[in-house]
Structure formats: structure tokens, C-alpha cells
Design a binder for these strands. Structure first.
Lengths: 196, 196
DNA sequence: CCACTGAAGCTAACGCGATTAGCTAAAGGC
DNA sequence: GCCTTTAGCTAATCGCGTTAGCTTCAGTGG
């Protein structure tokens, strides 16, 4: 008696919600099926495997995160853009830890994997944001990687409960943003000794 | 016909080596048993479960990383200590990606988990290193978290193949270290506007 | 030197979660 | 109002972690 009316998209969305609740490595086809009011094998009518499902979640996550960051940066520049973009990313990871974990666990499956453009949109936002600090062109890639490293590192450490005293984590994050901002402005254009 | 002469320690060591080769999520009891020339169930004479094995790998990793960082910092201070410590950590992760992944996947199992002191030793090294920059006491925790975030973020992104152009990753890392060093020295003592 | 105990391996078997095969019936097009 | 398509179901397979119970070697005390 078909009534659930599932689609690949709805299954993916439900899986993403589930994964945010129970954690990425606790995702199971049985649990997801239960949530959807369906028996486990029925899911295979919409998804070819659990691995593919995880990959779909990853693409969804990267797309959503990209949108959030882009929206946050909209209309801002320099320090404001950095602060807004970084906060947007951190917020996304806090609200969707499972999706973010899925995104980190995935590797592009091929040259036409939609995960690739989704990732590139995120990078493009960071690049746009960095353009607000007129850095020496040769340093842009390093600044980009440094930025990605701190944000990714902070978000994952926080998600993993790596910071003991919860109280001041917000404060640490704004400190971190400010630290990066100062560094980027100090190293701007001049190609100062930051390129030792 | 007992001849393999395994011990919990030797099994853990072999598992750590295996995990560095095949990746943390590809660890399986069967694969490990094969490497040790033993049948799968025999491993349970030395290890209670795969989860416990993973946890042992994590403790080993944290201990080894802690030693490497401590040794690198030995006898250095300020910028030199930062550069040496950071490089030691990055090198450890590059050489032992599976162990590092195990360490990240683990949570302390209780108050007397040896993982806790092992982690603390790492933090203590970072703290010692940071003491070389006389920061305002109130900022130390933020600086520590920022430092952990960049290093962890860079290492995991690199391990995950997150940086496209391999060529300049070394350069990016030294740039990153220098960036942090500059920021720490700029924000030292004064409690400058880095604490806005 | 020999019987004895205990640990280390082994084979057989279970359980759970992912996946596949094949059946059934509702839904939408003609 | 038929007919094809397809979502969902039940039954069964497979792989892998884990448990049970047997067997044999290693070392010890007599």
C-alpha cells in the first residue's frame, strides 16, 4: 500500500535531519526508514546505497553552507565581511553538525560531481571576502588556506566538544576573528614580512 | 598451535600501523588479523572490542604526538618554538593520518581515561610555547584555542586532500605559522585592540 | 622428566545492519 | 475502466563484529 510518497530529495532531507540529531556515524538505513515510516529495503527505491545517501547529504550541506556564507557576506566588506562570514559558517556547523561531518567525510566521486561546484562556491565566497583586504596576489592562496584552516579547525573542535570551558567559546571565536582580521590588515598590500 | 605471541600492546601497534595505511574507517578486525597471521576471533584474547582497539590507537597517537611536539619545542622559545612545534605536529599527522583520525574520533571514556592526560600533555606544550609571547593572561585561552584551531584545521584539511595544488602546501604552512607568530607578537602584553 | 594449569589459537555459530530478489498493489496515463 | 509503472513489502543473502567452546602449546611444581 504505497502512501509514503518518498522521493530521493525527501529521503536525503530526512537523512540530513537525522544525522544532525544522532551524529554522522550513527546514521543507519534502519533508523532512517523508521523515521520515514517505511521498511528499510524501501529506501533503496530512492537511493542506491548508504554511501550515496551520505554523499547526497554532503552535497546538501556544502550547498547550504555556501548559501549561508554568501548571504552573510552580502553587502559587507573587510572586517565586517570576515566577521559575518565566519559567524555564518560557525553557526551552520553548530546547527548542522551531522551534515558538516558528512561533507568532511566525502570525496568527489568524479569530475562532474555536484559536490565540486558546491565546494567552489564556498571558496569563492572566502575569496571575495579576502579581496576586501588588498593582499599581495601571491599571498592570497596562503591567506585563503589559513582562513579555511582556522574556521574548519575551530568548528570541528567545537563540534567534537574539544573546548573544555563552554562558557567562553563565543568570546574565543570573536577573538579569533579579530586576530585574523588584524593579521590580514597588517599584511595587506605591503607584502610585509608576513611573507618572510 | 600458539606461536604468534601477541600482546595487547603489539596488537595496538599493528592496528595503528594498519590504520595509517588503509585509513581509520577502513580498519577491520579481519584485516588486522590477517596482518598478524591470526584468525579474527583470536584478537579478542588481547582486545575486548574494536571500539576499545580504536581507543587504544587514539591514546597511542596522542602520546606520540605529545612527545613529538614536546621534543620539538625543547630548547626553543618564541617564534622558533612555534615554528618547530607546529611543524612537528603537521609532520606527525602526515606520517600517521590514521592514528590522528582515531584520536579525533575518540571521546574520554571516564575520569581515569589515559587519553585525558595524554591530551593534556599536548595542551601543556602549546601553553609552554605560548608563554614565550607575553600575552595578557586573559587572552591566553583564546590564543590557545586559535592556535589549536589553525593547526588542527590545517592538518585535517591537508590529510583529507582539501588543498588542491599540492605544490605550495609547505609554503602555505610556513606562511600560516608566520602569520600566527606576527599576530601573537603584535597582540603581546599590551592587550592591544586584539581584545576589542 | 612429567603431569597440570592457563593462556592463545582455532572452528563454529550468532546477530545486526546493509543490500538484493521477487512479489503486490496503488497511481496515473490511455 | 484497463495497463504499465513503481513504491513498498517480505524473505533471503552477505559481511563483519562478536561469543562460545574446544584444543594445544608453554611453563611450572613435583
Amino acid at each position: 500500500m504505497p502512501k509514503a510518497r518518498l522521493t530521493p530529495a525527501s529521503v536525503t532531507e530526512a537523512a540530513a535531519a537525522l544525522v544532525d540529531e544522532v551524529g554522522f556515524d550513527n546514521l543507519s538505513m534502519g533508523l532512517l526508514a523508521e523515521r520515514l515510516g517505511v521498511k528499510t529495503p524501501s529506501l533503496y527505491k530512492h537511493v542506491t546505497s548508504q554511501a550515496e545517501l551520505a554523499h547526497r547529504i554532503a552535497v546538501l550541506a556544502m550547498t547550504e553552507a555556501g548559501d549561508a556564507i554568501r548571504d552573510a557576506i552580502q553587502g559587507r566588506s573587510g572586517s565586517d565581511a570576515l566577521a559575518a562570514g565566519a559567524q555564518a559558517m560557525r553557526t551552520y556547523v553548530r546547527e548542522h553538525p551531522g551534515r558538516y561531518a558528512a561533507a568532511n567525510a566525502t570525496r568527489p566521486t568524479g569530475p562532474d560531481d555536484p559536490f565540486i561546484p558546491a565546494s567552489e562556491r564556498v571558496l569563492a565566497s572566502w575569496a571575495a571576502m579576502l579581496s576586501g583586504y588588498d593582499l599581495d596576489p601571491g599571498q592570497e592562496i596562503h591567506a585563503m588556506r589559513t582562513l579555511r584552516s582556522v574556521l574548519h579547525g575551530f568548528a570541528t573542535l567545537e563540534a567534537a566538544g574539544g573546548f573544555q570551558i563552554d562558557a567562553s567559546v563565543d568570546e574565543s571565536f570573536t577573538w579569533l576573528i579579530n586576530f585574523i582580521d588584524q593579521g590580514l590588515r597588517a599584511g595587506a598590500a605591503s607584502g610585509s614580512d608576513a611573507a618572510r
